[in-house]
Design a protein around this nucleic acid. Sequence first.
DNA 1: GGACTACATATGTATAGACATAACGGCATA
DNA 2: TATGCCGTTATGTCTATACATATGTAGTCC
Lengths: 232, 232
Amino acid sequence: MTGERASFRTIRDELSRRIAERVWLPGTLIPGEETLAEEFGAARATVNRALQELARAGILERRRRAGTRVALHPVREARFIIPRIRQEIEGRGSDYQYRLLSCEEAKAPEVICARLSLQPGSRLLHVRCLHLADRVPYQFEDRWINPKVVPDALQADFSQVGPNEWLVGHAPFSTAEFTFMAAAASAEEAGLLQIREGDPVFVGERITWMRADPITLAHLVHPSSHRMVTQL
Amino acid sequence: MTGERASFRTIRDELSRRIAERVWLPGTLIPGEETLAEEFGAARATVNRALQELARAGILERRRRAGTRVALHPVREARFIIPRIRQEIEGRGSDYQYRLLSCEEAKAPEVICARLSLQPGSRLLHVRCLHLADRVPYQFEDRWINPKVVPDALQADFSQVGPNEWLVGHAPFSTAEFTFMAAAASAEEAGLLQIREGDPVFVGERITWMRADPITLAHLVHPSSHRMVTQL
DNA sequence: GGACTACATATGTATAGACATAACGGCATA
DNA sequence: TATGCCGTTATGTCTATACATATGTAGTCC
């Protein structure tokens, strides 16, 4: 005899059902926590937890004093797992291979410095490498690392371990920004990914910071067969 | 004299800081809730809330009896807001325009039926339209709607209101799947988006279900200048 | 040694009670 | 009419306590 207990999950799901089945239409002011607590025979804190989860998911809108209403414009959010490339490839049952293409300290181009809010002409560590799945090019990584923040990176050996994997273990970040876009493959990218120049590529760009200091900018290029999928 | 109170936010941020600054290295078993509660002068429930948030973000791993440890592989997740196109455009301060291109019931191609797990040859409502920002093509939407689930759609007038906006108000979904990819513009897409055939485009695909029934499949094509950005 | 069991323990969840905080709406004032 | 103050009220958060649940560990038995 279990499951009769009104847990916050039960409440959350039941409220979610009422919204999905349009018992409560968008914009409706739903009963207050106290009332719901009574209805479900639970404490207000329990109802609160259920409501907060739904609000976080974007299907409820809550305001003090004003009460809780069904979101008019369910701005729902999708969550993408940002896996490490090795795990992503091995997780699909493929063999992962890695190839370091180049690694050198160099004066970073204007664009890069600007993206990282660094002085133009800053010297950064430039790493280029290729990730393969079952020997087929999967991602070309073009990365700039700020040695001011991660001095160890200058001594690191990226011939076996990719810079991302290395950074995860040596330089945690406090904030990150991800950008995704479509682009046309440059001649270099095309050669490395075994596609034709100008073919569409799926590009991810990742910038990470430690506090206000930029750690790294990664430009990640996939052939157009790449899919980024998420369930909601 | 406020702020001295140890709220779950304070605790969350302080723990987060310790992890970011490598006071607690990945893999470390951190003190138990009871201990932390004592340290912060808070109740265990408060510490619990802070820890649960960090666990949800993927930077802590918790297991009953085993305790809480700093995630070895911070599989962090990025959250993308899935806005409605009008809001997305107006939110950037641009003017939104909408143009319906076609709207008819038709036998859906194999691929579409397969993606929606429907019998091959099912008759679906096919809507094509264009969204513009400041009169510049922003997104071409090619959508199939399942009239079995949303019969009202057959009578709906999509000449003024886009099908997405209409669906939000008439057919809430229980689950959704989002896919993003890069592709080459077809001749039709190129014409509508005012780019050249074969130019890279950023494509989003969205399928929604109500329970087990597929509601709609939307194919959303952006010119390659489109950026999808998220902060973490 | 290996399998099984009992126990200890950290987290998971629920509860009642309390106070904090924001903001709706009405009332008073300029 | 417009403005500003303020009480009421729904949500936000914290506390203390209790019990549930999973699971590592130690101890037992063969």
